[in-house]
Design a binder for these strands. Structure first.
Lengths: 341, 341
DNA sequence: GCAATCCGTTAAAGCGCTTTAATCGTGGTG
DNA sequence: CACCACGATTAAAGCGCTTTAACGGATTGC
């Protein structure tokens, strides 16, 4: 900042004074509210322009009945979330809402992120890939409309917009089984509700193909590291699976990494499928077969759900389940052997 | 949201009443300000707990002299920025500041992102990888302390914390030349100031090794796509370079993708170097040789710069230039031929 | 020509919190 | 025992904006 005396930022009062009207009129004009006539409008607008007036958001928030603010919780490490955020921005704007972003990081958990948003007068919350316990979500929902994106919230009033993850993973299994794989393993995503749904999909998918005897779930979490660890576990000794479905793309990429390091041919020796169709998976370099959650659709529904609560007076619960879509890329192919015992 | 009447959220007044004190005392206690005695403190704290009181941030912002808010502009698409944001969170917290995030997306430009922050009463701005013209930054800096992270801002009062990008790229060239490469190309990052510095580093590096005759800069931008396009240009016909330095990791990964698709061996036939040491580069799968900006150090300096302006009364300009560090991974090696004409 | 009507404008009361100056006890002091 | 100093507490004035009810003046209708 330069050394000069910092000029006090102009207030509404300054604009009003400059335009020769009351602050009430100035406020009305600047927000495009009906009332003030054409000539007045122009005078105020001109004055505001001359002074470089920008309304003070804190003051406006405090005075306004509504904040028109939607809080968004995202995991800053996830490329999938990054993409969702882009889309939430657009969707919210279309409905005349603004966003407040709150990041989950290594040492800033979801509860913390939510608190910031509550303190910021958000009217509703969009939780991307929340891992919070159902009860907490239900409690939150008692305070303000909440929509959970990408995870189920059993038996709570919370709105949900998600892909049918179980179906999604089952589709991945279908795809692999169709290629002739039988020993298909799954890298789990931890104890959260999202992981549970996907795990179930894997189990169902396998049984559907009478592959229950080949069920193999290894522990994991949503990070790249866990994929690499899973690879070590799966291929430690003897004969590993011919295909692996991972909890998400990040995890799948970690798995690919480890395989690559060990000179395991993908998809020749092992096929790999991820989940999310994040920007990561689309890198030609990675070229990961994955399951898309149709992020744009997901986000559109989520924002609409929130807006209907706020502006449409909807009070009944809503759950939108979007069918996932298998995106076949380069990491899957027929198994080298026939997959038999 | 459930159907029940939404309970009005408790105000300071409610807490004060519940504790049998004035709002002044309650405010003092809740902020840990000196004054109220032990017994009173406990009563107020207990009351606040009982009511589940959370201070209203908008009101508090409005009333307070200081907001203790630092605005951060980030590009939501950049994994490098994501990492920086994590670190900014921690650094800011150490100094007792809170963050307001504002994302640059496909259709939300930097100016827009900055406006949101200005309206939010931020006391200072941390701009990650800003591409705004110097004049605009200078103007901004007249309103509040601004620190640009990762880019130079010539001849403006704006504080700058950045890596010596020219040196960084030159180090990459050194590394490649040392391996025996001579035809080393560079994929540019566009017209911004960051790109300019890195381009200059490339040119200097090449001349330093008497490789001026092999200078080859192809147009690009910070995305993956541009790397892929560059590959097509560089290896379109005949003999391409034996090594390529890219503007950043995303661009390098795009380049790697394209090479991989064409079955070009990396680093056998072509070596590739990125820039940023983003999480992307570290994926074992990508395993990209790159130049690290020492993000943690960068962020620490940036936050300190801002805090010194705000709390330390510093007024003179500061520019911190951190030496970059070459991180050699798997995408670089000696050229197949000797690199001669 | 006077009341009814209407439109543009404004005074004033907040929004929920912070902060400063003033007030109230209390115990120590001469 | 009157007086003072001092720490704990509070009244009250904002912070910058929104919003509602009220207002004045210009039309309009009868």
């Amino acid at each position: 900042m330069s050394v000069e005396e910092p000029v006090r930022r102009p207030r509404l009062q300054d604009v009003a004074h400059e335009a020769g009207v009351s602050t009430a009129t100035a406020s009305l004009v600047l927000r495009g509210a009906p009332g003030p006539g054409g000539a007045t409008r122009e005078r105020v607008l001109a004055a505001a322009g001359r002074l470089g007036y920008r309304p003070d958001r804190a003051a406006s928030l405090l005075a306004r009945r509504r904040s028109r603010l939607i809080g968004v919780v995202m995991d800053v490490r996830s490329t999938f979330h990054a993409q969702l955020v882009e889309e939430v921005h657009e969707a919210a704007e279309r409905h005349g809402y603004d966003l407040v972003l709150s990041a989950v990081t290594r040492n800033r958990d979801e509860a913390r992120a939510v608190e910031t948003l509550l303190d910021s007068r958000c009217e509703a919350l969009v939780l991307l890939g929340s891992e919070a316990p159902t009860a907490r979500l239900a409690a939150l929902d008692r305070q303000l409309p909440v929509v959970a994106v990408g995870r189920p919230v059993p038996s709570a009033g919370v709105d949900v917009v998600r892909a049918a993850d179980d179906e999604g993973v089952a589709m991945a299994v279908d795809h692999l089984a169709g290629l002739g794989h039988r020993r298909i393993a799954y890298v789990d995503g931890g104890r959260g509700p999202i992981a549970a749904g996907r795990r179930r999909g894997y189990q169902r998918g396998m049984r559907r193909h009478r592959l229950g005897g080949h069920l193999q779930v290894v522990a994991g979490d949503p990070g790249e590291e866990s994929g690499a660890r899973a690879a070590r576990t799966l291929f430690r000794e003897g004969r590993g699976p011919t295909a692996v479905v991972a909890y998400n793309d990040h995890c799948a990429v970690g798995l690919l990494d480890a395989l690559l390091r060990d000179d395991v041919d993908v998809p020749g020796a092992v096929s790999v499928v991820g989940y999310d169709d994040s920007p990561l998976a689309r890198l030609a370099h990675v070229d990961l077969t994955t399951v898309s959650q149709e992020s744009e659709l997901l986000v559109r529904h989520a924002v609409e759900a929130v807006v209907e609560r706020l502006d449409g007076g909807r009070t009944e619960h809503r759950e939108v389940v979007v069918p996932p879509r298998l995106v076949v890329r380069g990491t899957t192919g027929p198994p080298r052997d026939d997959g038999s015992l």
